[in-house]
Write a protein that binds this DNA or RNA. Structure first.
Lengths: 187, 187
DNA sequence: CGCTAAGCGGCACTCGGTGCCACCACCAGA
DNA sequence: TCTGGTGGTGGCACCGAGTGCCGCTTAGCG
């Protein structure tokens, strides 16, 4: 098992049992069998042990979005999110642990939203392309940010339902995009 | 001038000239004429010097929202945001400085979004009340988060237009809420 | 076998943030 | 006037995250 992977495992384990703030980088390094200095070579900050995978998701999203046809950004974004968030059952427990940490540790939630900025801009640019408008236009920006915010709501809701499976996640994504498509003034 | 106010002033000044990360708390304390320890009595973190006022805004929002009649949450939220974000011309330069910092210092952007969580829940609860549904329902949660995300887009857009005044801010708020009300699938 | 290059990790340092405690001013009451 | 709180202050020591530097080991290669 590669060093980074092992560090990630022991870190999530320690965070789950002791808490994030109560676990020092020294402990993580010792538990992972490396020096403290080496830990920081694999992860720029302690936060990144938890958030590491988000960037891969962005790359995947951008790729799917690029190949998605049609001129309705909502349809395209929905398809992209359904494709990207297709988890195998075996991955769900780890996903739950990560989401739990991101929910309860404010510092992690904060850092996560910084990562989401790129998602927002990717979505805004895609929408602008389909609408034939400027990516910097307010409508495109509102779209990008609202979509990401909705996905946060989806993950939060999914995490709040302990028995929800991968299919339930998809259903929530559908529901969220329906709301975005129809707007909030219609009943 | 009270100590907190003075610290805030010199801090924003130093941040603007030297940069946020390049300014240490020691410098802020010296510039404000207090000890480092005293600085932390007025502001729990360095970030809070910039973000301090957000909490007042939340209280104001909640108050306006509570008194707002009608059963359309979009209408109520729009009215509330227009009321809360009514700035005098003299306040605009300070607002711009703050927004600029929040925009380009990732750590500040991150911390700001944590504050926004309360706004999101306030809006979700209000919407659920008007709809007669559960505040934890996905639709209410998506609404609350989408609204806050849209307001971030509004402030970002306003900050990006150097000549925009207070009226322009109101117009952007209107435009963003129109998008949310009508949804993103309609042209 | 010797050389080099890359990963590793110890060490010392900076900075944000906290707990503790001494100091000072101000104000009460005797 | 003296005395005894009391709240604001800030020095001091400490912790943990993160960084630069540098010496060490080890693997690969001529």
């Amino acid at each position: 098992m590669p060093v980074a992977r092992r560090l990630e495992d022991v870190a999530l384990e320690l965070f789950a049992t002791q808490g994030f703030d109560e676990t020092t980088v020294d402990e993580l390094a010792v538990a992972g069998g490396v020096g403290r200095r080496t830990f920081f070579r694999y992860f720029p900050t302690k936060l990144d042990v938890v958030l590491g995978e988000l960037d891969d998701g962005l790359a995947a999203l951008a790729a799917v979005l690029r190949d998605e046809p049609g001129d309705d950004p909502v349809v395209a974004a929905r398809a992209a999110f359904l494709a990207v968030n297709h988890y195998a059952d075996a991955e769900l427990p780890a996903l739950r642990r990560r989401l739990g940490l991101i929910e309860d540790v404010p510092e992690l939630a904060a850092r996560a939203t910084v990562r989401y900025r790129d998602w927002e801009q990717t979505l805004a640019t895609d929408a602008a392309g389909r609408w034939g408008t400027d990516p910097a236009s307010l409508r495109a920006q509102v779209f990008g940010r609202a979509v990401v915010a909705s996905m946060r709501a989806v993950f939060s809701a999914w995490h709040g339902r302990p028995e929800a499976d991968a299919a339930a996640l998809g259903a929530l994504v559908e529901e969220a995009f329906d709301a975005l498509a129809r707007g909030f003034s219609s009943p």
